[in-house]
């Protein structure tokens, strides 16, 4: 077997194993904490008999391991169970919200990734000069702010003062693509600002790291222009770390999305999760938590896979 295939298989197997372990933590770990689901539904005044009946009905009297495998089997077949609070089918509630979340995160990624790489290249080209200092200064200040603060600043400037966009991101079924895009403009701007800084700084660092190599000096001595050196010599060699950073930030978007959705009252998966944490609706929280964790693990795995494929030293072993 080609060594690269072996590495890839190993990495993917590790990712799946991790996913399984995470599902066990989300289910069994939470079981181990103090708290009683039946009590949570019926309230403090419930009679012991009523509690017993409800436990039997929800299957809570089975041993935890049995319930874990039932839960896992249900998830693999697309059955996420029913919400405790209103008895709604969780899978049906998640589907449109997941689409909304992916739309928001997707829009942010499409803008943030090329912009971050471009800014990173410019900052690396003019390292230590004013364009680098301006870009680094602005991105450094957005790094120190939590998402919801950036959210309110953007909302205040563009939503309230300028009035360009609605301060809340209302979407409804049957909206046209452009209307939808206009509605999510503010949350997209916030997410772009939040991930841009980190991605741009890492791109800059990766390029500058490669710029110290001997072959870059050779290119300089040959008289290649600085932008061409970066474009033709530095970028191809820096691509693996850059891709890894991009993927990590996309994974980070998945988390940032939770807060930003709440800021702009955007009806999507993050808002749904937070609502049901407040209501202590454990089955919903476990299902949505697993989805977020799954996407995060998947993107991290993808980052490693692309890193392996993009690394010329691994592709052409001696």
């Amino acid at each position: 077997m080609h060594p690269i295939v072996k590495l890839l298989v190993q990495r993917i197997a590790l990712g799946l194993l991790l996913l399984l372990a995470v599902s066990a933590v989300i289910f069994l770990g939470v079981e181990a904490l103090p708290g009683d689901t039946a009590q949570a539904i019926l309230g403090q005044s419930a009679t012991p008999q009523a509690l017993e009946n409800l436990r039997a009905q929800l299957g809570l009297s089975d041993p935890p391991l049995t319930r874990y495998f039932n839960w896992l089997g249900g998830i693999l077949t697309g059955d996420l169970g029913k919400a405790l609070t209103n008895g709604a089918d969780i899978a049906a509630s998640i589907k449109p919200r997941l689409a909304n979340t992916l739309f928001l995160a997707g829009c942010a990624a499409v803008i943030a990734v090329p912009l971050a790489i471009l800014l990173g290249l410019v900052a690396a080209r003019y390292a230590g000069k004013w364009p680098d200092k301006v870009i680094s200064g602005i991105t450094l200040s957005t790094i120190s702010l939590p998402e919801f603060v950036v959210g309110y600043i953007v909302m205040y400037i563009f939503g309230v003062k300028m009035g360009w966009f609605s301060p809340t991101a209302m979407t409804f079924p049957g909206m046209s693509f452009w209307d939808r895009l206009h509605a999510v403009a503010l949350p997209v701007i916030v997410l772009v600002l939040v991930v841009l800084a980190h991605m741009m700084r890492m791109t800059r660092a990766a390029i500058l790291n490669v710029m110290q190599s001997a072959y870059i000096e050779t290119a300089e001595l040959k008289g290649v222009t600085p932008m061409n050196i970066i474009w033709k010599h530095a970028l191809p060699n820096a691509i693996a770390p850059v891709v890894a950073v991009v993927m990590l930030n996309l994974a980070y978007l998945v988390v940032g999305v939770v807060v930003v959705e709440v800021v702009f009252s955007y009806n999507a998966l993050g808002q749904y999760l937070v609502d049901h944490v407040t209501k202590r609706d454990l089955p919903v929280v476990q299902a949505v938590g697993l989805i977020f964790a799954g996407v995060y693990i998947l993107l991290n795995m993808l980052a490693d896979v692309i890193g392996i494929i993009a690394n010329p030293r691994l592709r052409h072993p001696k």
């Binding site: 991790l18 989300i26 939470v30 103090p34 944490v277 476990q286 938590g289 977020f292 964790a293």
Partner: peptide, 20 residues
């Protein structure tokens, strides 16, 4: 620690705080 860091902290915190 690898396992704990495989899930975003905010998501873990939300799952925990739905019970605690």
């Amino acid at each position: 620690v690898d396992l704990m860091m495989a899930i975003p902290s905010l998501i873990v915190a939300l799952v925990l705080l739905s019970v605690l």
